[in-house]
């Protein structure tokens, strides 16, 4: 039953013209990576990796926000819900079908982008020999955790969609959390530094800590530095981030299903 909804949503994503355009733009940007990289003169390889990872990350973010925030809202707006939610499906299957279809779309898109990026990086590194080796495992790990970050973002977008009647909260709420989540670690570390902590008022410090633990720590998913420069990949960091992703995403999806199951469609 669940796979039926999952396949339906996958069909919607594949036939979506906006998605097709975004994938096209991403591929074009990746193909242009060697041309942009030679502008750096000596750090062609490093810049090609940086640009490739950044382009992939940017397009995955757009896909996650657009697909995640619009999927439920669009069904309500176009009254598809009155047809699909009256079939013998639970509300949970409906939401999870959407979530997994978008997640699979992100994984597949990232796989295609990584393949093209690998060609672009190899080609760029041949243009100007770098003293650093290309760490393919680190590059793939960086992309994989970027995908996980955006899959988590899709869960957040779906949570907002499950409680909101308009597209404002799903779209702008998700964008806000993406920005806040990327910066939360640095802000938290800054505020809890002893020198700063003394100056910061206690209530504000507690509020900042509360927010830090509440919003997703998306900075933890950033493994780009070890992909670009010869920095060792921390296996502990990888495992903790993976566990964090699993726990946080499960909680968010549970809340989304909880709220959506109580929602009315008059």
């Amino acid at each position: 039953m669940f796979t039926n909804l999952y396949q339906l949503n996958l069909k919607w994503i594949i036939r979506d013209r906006v998605l097709q355009a975004l994938v096209g733009v991403a591929l074009l940007l990746l193909v242009l990576v060697p041309a942009f990289s030679v502008l750096s003169m000596r750090q062609v390889q490093e810049l090609s990796i940086t640009l490739s990872l950044s382009f992939i990350s940017f397009v995955l973010a757009l896909l996650a926000i657009l697909l995640g925030a619009s999927s439920v809202w669009r069904d309500i707006e176009k009254r598809y819900t009155s047809a699909v939610l009256t079939l013998p499906y639970s509300r949970g299957s409906y939401l999870l079908g959407k979530f997994f279809a978008i997640a699979v779309c992100l994984v597949c898109s990232a796989a295609i982008f990584t393949l093209v990026a690998a060609v672009a990086i190899s080609f760029s590194s041949g243009l100007y020999q770098s003293s650093l080796p290309i760490r393919w495992l680190h590059i793939f790990t960086a992309v994989a955790f970027d995908v996980l970050k955006y899959v988590l973002l899709v869960a957040i977008a779906i949570l907002f969609s499950s409680i909101s009647t308009s597209f404002f909260l799903p779209i702008f709420g998700t964008i806000s959390l993406l920005l806040a989540g990327n910066a939360s670690q640095e802000v938290f570390e800054y505020l809890t530094k002893d020198s700063v902590g003394v100056k910061t008022a206690k209530p504000l410090l507690y509020a900042a800590k509360g927010i830090y633990y509440l919003i997703p720590n998306l900075g933890a998913f950033n493994f780009k530095v070890s992909a670009i420069y010869p920095v060792a990949l921390s296996s502990q960091g990888v495992i903790y981030t993976l566990l964090y992703f699993l726990v946080y995403t499960t909680i968010i999806l549970y809340l989304a299903v909880y709220f959506f199951s109580r929602r009315e469609f008059p």
Partner: peptide
């Protein structure tokens, strides 16, 4: 449903 609307990409 009243005034039905179905997935129009299908």
């Amino acid at each position: 449903p009243e005034n039905p609307s179905f997935y129009d990409f299908l």
